[in-house]
Amino acid sequence: MPVSARSGFSAQTLSVLAALCAQPSQWCHGYELAKQTGLKSGTLYPILIRLADRGLVEACWQDEPQPGRPRRHLYRLTAAGLASATEALAGPAAEPVAVRAGNRSAGAGARTASAGRDTVAGVVQ
């Protein structure tokens, strides 16, 4: 998996961070993140697990599930995660690298990362 030399995050991880960065205080669902980043569940969840292991993302179960549906798992950035994401997305080296040609999910990730950088830039300003 290509990794940003500066931040140490892969392009896919950056896209997840960017998606979470868009509304840092809001809890996000896995499917919502998958749609935003274009990542499959088999790629998205391992990334979330790693980020949670590093204390960059916190997870919890939904308090009140919709009737007839199981409770959903929710995610958002921690303070440390927001700082790391801000740093990783702010620099030029955060450009997702080595995106395979025709890779739809990575392309979506790049767009999300770009949007995340805009958000971060707004926060910083």
């Binding site: 669902h29 969840y45 409770r71 798992h73």
Partner: peptide
Amino acid sequence: WAAAVWAEAHE
């Protein structure tokens, strides 16, 4: 996490 993926499948 396994339960999370499965729960999310309903969405």
